[in-house]
Design a protein around this nucleic acid. Sequence first.
DNA 1: GCTATATAGTTTCGTCTGTGACCAAATTTC
DNA 2: GAAATTTGGTCACAGACGAAACTATATAGC
Lengths: 161, 161
Amino acid sequence: MSADDAEARLRLDSYLPYRLSVASNAVSGLIARAYQDRFGLTIPQWRVICVLARDGRLTQGQIVGRTFMDKVTVSRAVQGLAARRLVDRSEHHADGRSHMLALAPEGRRLFSEIAPLALAYETALISGLAPEEVTLLRRLLTRLQSAAAALVGEGERPPIG
Amino acid sequence: MSADDAEARLRLDSYLPYRLSVASNAVSGLIARAYQDRFGLTIPQWRVICVLARDGRLTQGQIVGRTFMDKVTVSRAVQGLAARRLVDRSEHHADGRSHMLALAPEGRRLFSEIAPLALAYETALISGLAPEEVTLLRRLLTRLQSAAAALVGEGERPPIG
DNA sequence: GCTATATAGTTTCGTCTGTGACCAAATTTC
DNA sequence: GAAATTTGGTCACAGACGAAACTATATAGC
């Protein structure tokens, strides 16, 4: 493809990375505001709560492994949650560097309160989409994500090699 | 739906807003790094260049209207581009507060250089997807975006009314 | 055992962001 | 045509972010 072709074909409003970013910002902004305004939670905090609600006692590292969040992000999220007594941090029996995290009763209560709201948001967002479209959307997002991850790996390789 | 149902059904790894955010971050991170490392451009700057390359002379407000970017973001992007002489700012003939923006020759050259790379990234990302899947993906992203916008509007309404 | 290396998590630092205040020019209202 | 409002754009601030440095503990190699 020549550079001229590229110039002609590059339309921002149909450029997929751009479209993905705009859509994601719109959705995230909506949800972030809802959680912040009503419950004083950031999105990373809410994610941590979700994971703990589902999988029980975990270390921060395990949360990182499950969520694609940065470890700094998780660290800060947990600090905030622990300060509000929404999660308990207890010593790790076998590793002095680590802590076991679990939802405190108040955290569990909050999760119960927010979960229906979160699902309602999702339902509202995908209303008007056919179920098989939603399924496909999830699959396509996964594909894009792993393609991006693979390309990052490529970019890190030395130029000659 | 009861709160218990919601708790049981809420799995972060199939929650669409979460998946969208993770996929978008992966893709944006990839592209942001490429533009930053090779050309010293931020994503907002690159978007401004794209729009100007396509639509010619515009004000910042028109760029905001076309891109969903914040006006502060556009302002900062343009400042950087103008400082590097990639865009020209000239007086607006009819509105003293505003400026007409256009790509400078060096900006146009840069666009010609990056455009093929940008399209190559897109191609790599969607390789393995059928063309009709890509089309559908674009449609679904648009749907999500406007659904989110509509819900934001709802949230802003006063509780009683 | 003792040094070297790896890992869990935190802190620091520079950068990027959006919000809200703000300024100046334009437009509307009376 | 002066006062009030709106609009284009910038500034100042505070929050969020990630890369890299750092602390503390754990494991490996010898």
